[in-house]
Design a protein around this nucleic acid. Structure first.
Length: 540
RNA sequence: GGGGGCGUAGCUCAGUGGUAGAGCAGAAGCCUUUUAAGCUUUUGGCCGUGGGUUCGAGUCCCACCGCCCUCACCA
């Protein structure tokens, strides 16, 4: 905030407290509005009462969920208590004040911690006039408090902490968006007020999480997803490894990298765009099955399905081909869906999909014939295929190679692939790391799989012929040679590794963010990233 | 990068070229079993930023910034 605007007085006050020389005042927070100014005044008033608003010591005997469970256990053990009040022994709870209903010398409020929410009852008689006044005058919504008391059930049937005393744990100087909840007869909760602006929610995710419990649930599901995948891989006999994120040569995908610079070594480095080439080196090193879960970085546009950094699972397993990878994929996702949602049947944006194996397997040729009505095998000439695509009314890039035109047709197919589907056997010129299909020089043993119209992952029978691989790298380099931005460097060390002998193997890569989108029914990747990439903006 | 939409109080949103509004939050008062508490009173605005048209712009025009959708890009 610029000097001279309202609230400056408080900034000056803080400057003087901090002994900042005049003219050298650093950036000091100043209240942005009347509500914040009043909160700052309250903080000073609390200090004036001789109370530290951010005390170093906390005591908590139970989480809120534990306290409620404890009460319910006691209540069930004394069913004949009748009119006799049932209550717990004294305990201490901590949490954020999220609702307050003062009624004269009695106040009902709600506090919330990470485990849940409970009503607290504060009576002037119980806590004394001074504390009671402080609670109503100086404690605001969203402050953190610690409260001692016993848990009982009110006349209205609400499990409640009857407060004997309390202390302020942390003063909130900025108000969060206020959201009220009404519990209906059937137990559902109706909410009033909302914090929904996606920009504000993503730039200030902490506020989003603080007031929107369902957003917290999304990231719990994300954590469960990753831990289920890891459990599945571990139990399937895979070794979890970590490979370099900072790489001297990037590869394994056709994406533009982020470039950075190592000062001491004085050379440029790249943030990885895939794990592939490092993980396959490990098969040369005689691990039979490896996987990695981690972040990839691609310097491309952002969209509903793309974030510049995203989380990927890749695995490579010796002595299987892409058919074996499909078997593993089905089982892995069925297992993960079950672990996260309790069922293999998942609802996503109005669709109901069943992730239980087996999934449909259909070749790219058949899929394009079925959904785009084009028999691309009947058009082996690039210009001919281009005309056939245009004749059907689809867009096509005239500069694309034959295999790229085929790949483009997948965009027509994709929205139709609602139930989990493996699309198999891709054109070779868009698949430089996959092994050729026997007896078919134009295709490789590769599949991608789609669920609810989303492309989820990519896998092949991995190419382990070092000379074929070298030829493909050179072809790639020639292809992209005209465009330095997309030039693909030849990874000589990777070729050397292959020349030592690489076992036949099947490899797999999957975007975990998209899987979380599917399992949490979120249509936008930003909703499953805690801090999605946003343009830098003043003040954020 | 192209096309479309949006940007007004802390939050969610109204607003016809003519005095900037509502609900909730906030403040003051009353209230000892409330629970979206209630009743009374009330504070709060660079209408994204900068130009322009006009007697007069939140509103119309242009540019820029940001967000959303979409296309392109993206194995």
């Amino acid at each position: 905030m610029a000097p001279g605007l309202p609230g400056r007085r408080c900034g000056e006050l803080y400057s003087s407290i901090c002994h900042i020389p005049a003219g050298r005042r650093p950036i000091v927070w100043e209240p942005a509005n009347e509500a914040e100014r009043l909160r700052l005044e309250k903080l000073e008033r609390v200090r004036a009462r001789g109370i530290e608003p951010y005390p170093p010591r906390v005591r908590r005997t139970h989480s809120i969920a534990e306290a409620i469970a404890l009460f319910e256990t006691i209540e069930q053990a004394h069913p004949a208590a009748g009119e006799q009040a049932v209550e717990t022994t004294p305990l201490t709870l901590c949490g954020r004040l999220v609702a307050s209903r003062p009624k004269g010398k009695l106040t009902f409020a709600d506090i919330e911690d990470g485990s849940g929410r409970i009503q607290v009852m504060i009576r002037q008689n119980a806590v004394g006039e001074e504390l009671y006044e402080m609670f109503n005058r100086d404690i605001d919504l969203f402050d953190f408090v610690q409260a001692d008391g016993v848990v009982f059930r009110t006349k209205m049937g609400e499990i409640t902490l009857r407060v004997e005393s309390f202390i302020l744990l942390s003063k909130a100087l900025t108000q969060l968006p206020d959201i009220k909840e009404q519990r209906l007869e059937d137990g559902t909760i109706r909410r009033y007020g909302s914090f929904t602006d996606p920009e504000a929610r993503h730039r200030q995710r902490y506020a989003d999480l603080a007031v929107n419990p369902e957003v917290r649930d999304v990231f719990r599901a994300r954590a469960k997803t990753i831990s289920a995948l890891r459990r599945f891989m571990d139990e399937a006999g895979f070794l979890e490894v970590e490979t370099p994120i900072l790489q001297p040569i990037y590869g394994g995908a056709a994406a533009r990298p982020f470039v950075t610079h190592h000062n001491a070594l004085d050379h440029d480095m790249y943030l990885r765009i895939s794990f592939e080439l490092y993980l396959k080196r490990l098969l040369v090193g005689m691990y039979d099955a490896v996987y990695e879960i981690g972040r990839d970085f691609r310097n491309e546009g952002v969209s509903r399905k793309h974030n510049p950094e995203f989380t990927q699972l890749e695995f490579y397993k010796a002595y299987i081909d892409y058919n074996g990878v499909m078997d593993l994929t089905e089982r892995m996702l069925g297992y993960t869906a079950e672990a996260v949602t309790g069922s293999t049947i998942v609802r996503f944006q109005g669709h109901e999909v069943n992730l239980a194996p087996p999934w449909r397997r259909i070749s790219m040729h058949e899929a394009i014939l079925e959904y785009a009505g084009i028999d691309y095998a009947a058009h082996p000439d690039t210009a001919d295929l281009y005309r056939a695509i245009r004749a059907k009314g689809y867009e096509a890039n005239p500069d694309h190679k034959w295999g790229e035109l085929v790949g483009d047709l997948l965009d027509v197919v994709e929205p139709n692939l609602i139930q989990p589907t493996f699309i198999t056997d891709y054109p070779i010129d868009i698949s430089p790391l996959a092994k050729k299909k026997p007896g078919d020089p134009r295709h490789v043993e590769r599949f991608e799989f789609f669920i609810a119209g989303l492309e989820m992952g990519n896998a092949f029978t991995e190419l382990n012929d070092p000379l074929d691989q070298e030829a493909r790298f050179i072809e790639m380099g020639r292809l992209y040679g005209t465009d330095s931005e997309e030039a693909h460097p030849v990874d000589e060390d990777y070729l050397r590794a292959m020349r030592y002998g690489m076992p036949p193997n099947g490899g797999f890569g999957m975007g975990i963010d998209r899987l979380v989108m599917l399992l949490t029914d979120q249509p936008n990747i930003r909703e499953v990233l805690l801090f999605p990439a946003l343009r830098i903006r003043d003040g954020d």
